[in-house]
Write a protein that binds this DNA or RNA. Structure first.
Length: 426
RNA sequence: GGAAGAGUGGCAGAGCUGGUUUAAUGCACCGGUCUUGAAAACCGGCGUGGGUUACACCACCGGGGGUUCGAAUCCCUCCUCUUCCGCCA
């Protein structure tokens, strides 16, 4: 959620930023409406405060009068307060409406893009920040896509998943399950070595949490919802991890806050179809190790680059061809100020698959969740939040299987062998 | 799931027979005096948000709603914690 102060005081910058994000004209028009409504809010608040001050004063007097036994005068004053109360009640309602309307409008505005974000509206406009330098892997004769490899070596059963639940819920077996567990441990160990504290959060969150990180109301339809308890299955560990610090005032010395968590992620993916959802490309449930950082605004972009380096290190160790994209204004998420996507090459499909998204949200999330820190001048300021996948499992498994297939089976990268306990899947 | 009790400012802890407690007091913390320095002692400051050039002022005592001229205090409801019972990995 953008800060109202920023909208008011830096209107031109806000509008320019929104344009870069390719928002609709209706959204653009909101900026002006928001400022007007905020004026209205202030005026209403002020009127109400004056009335409340009056009521407080009169009530005080009534109290004094009763105490000194002047019952008649006290009762006379009561009548006076009565009429003021009616008025203040109406103002209270008007104030609430104004606040609700204001919030409803502000919440529709996406975060402003960082200066370095390229112009553009679609995926093709994303900037290749770092291309794959090495040669593309040469596949063996008769190389298979990952879903066929999964079947051939009995690693994953999509069919069983359908029996148990439905499409998009694969069942991992044998070395497939073992590989998955190895990757989870590998990623967690790497994150721990980089100074992240491991966290095991709940896999369901309440409305407030989903709202604070921006999933609600924006992505309501993308989450699984347990109606009876009004809980949402987490679409990413970002939600519980970041919410750990909801409504918190940190000291400067608390920074940096570095958390990592492995969780399954649940996404309804309504509207997806075709080759997009083939095999492991897009699932309703997949495993992911997430990094979350809370940082001082002065550091957050340095930290973003650190996170990039961390993810790169993982992909290097897994010996996978990858590239890094800097997302253009139109392709970035609603919440983000700057996002880098990592993609690994799916050799058999001939396409890049997104396996990580690393973003700086600046104060967009912290504003909504009231995550602040005390600055040197003693005042509270909003902290910056960042997160990134390190990494998303299912697609890593897919590209791992495809890129490392040999005539004799699938060779595990060296870094992983200690975790899998085997060198080959055959 | 059932019963009882409890949720107050960073912490501890009063207030809870409605009105100079519209939040005491202690600890912690910050500044100052004193001191060679420190401790102690003393003085002052010390929650969040709205609002103002700055004051004033307003809101917040787990969340929401209600009664009243006036609610931390009374009522309703939800949440959480503690204890007991039941169930259970």
């Amino acid at each position: 959620m953008l800060e109202i102060g920023v909208i008011r005081e830096e209107k031109e910058r806000v509008i320019a930023g929104l344009k870069k994000k390719n928002v609709s004209n209706e959204q653009l028009a909101l900026v002006e409406k928001i400022i007007l409504e905020d004026d209205n809010r202030k005026a209403t608040q002020t009127s109400l405060d004056i009335l409340l001050a009056k009521t407080n004063k009169l009530s005080d007097e009534i109290g004094q009068l009763f105490k000194s036994g002047k019952t008649t005068e006290a009762n006379a004053l009561k009548g006076e307060v009565g009429s003021i109360k009616e008025e203040s009640k109406m103002l209270e309602i008007a104030l609430k409406e104004s606040k609700d309307l204001l919030e409803e409008m502000i919440i529709q505005l996406p975060n402003l893009p960082h200066d370095s974000v390229p112009e553009g509206s679609k995926a093709e406009d994303n900037e290749v920040f770092k291309a794959w330098a090495g040669p593309m892997p040469e596949l063996i004769e008769g190389a298979l896509p990952h879903w066929e490899l999964a079947e051939k070596y009995n690693l994953i059963s999509f069919k069983d998943g359908v029996t148990l639940t439905g499409s998009g819920f694969p069942v991992y077996k044998g070395k497939g399950a073992r590989l998955q567990r190895a990757l989870i441990n590998f990623f967690l160990d790497e994150a721990t070595a980089a100074g992240y504290q491991e966290v095991q959060p709940p896999l369901m969150v309440n409305k407030e949490s989903a709202r604070a990180t921006g999933q609600l109301p924006d992505k309501e339809g993308q989450m699984y919802h347990c109606e009876k308890d009004d809980f949402y299955l987490i679409p990413t560990a970002e939600v519980p991890l970041t919410n750990l610090y909801r409504d918190t005032i940190l000291q400067k010395t608390d920074f940096p806050i570095k958390m990592t968590g492995y969780t399954p992620c649940f996404r309804r993916e309504a509207g997806s179809y075709g080759s997009d959802v083939k095999g492991l490309n897009r699932l309703h449930q997949f495993d992911k190790i997430e990094l979350v950082r809370l940082e001082h605004p002065d550091n957050s972009y340095d930290v973003l680059m650190q996170m990039l380096a961390h993810v790169e290190g993982l992909l290097e160790k897994l010996e996978l061809p990858y590239r890094i994209l800097r997302l253009c204004g139109g392709d970035m998420s609603f919440n983000s100020a700057l996002t880098f996507d990592f993609e690994t090459w799916s050799a058999a499909q001939g396409r890049w698959l997104e396996v990580s998204s690393v973003s700086n949200f600046e104060t967009f999330q912290s504003n909504r969740m009231k995550l602040r820190f005390r600055d040197d001048d003693g005042k509270t300021r909003l902290a910056h939040t960042l997160n990134g996948s390190a990494l998303a499992l299912a697609r890593i498994v897919a590209t791992l299987l495809e890129n490392h297939q040999t005539a004799d089976g699938i060779k595990m990268p060296k870094a992983l062998q200690a975790y899998t306990g085997f060198e080959m899947i055959n």
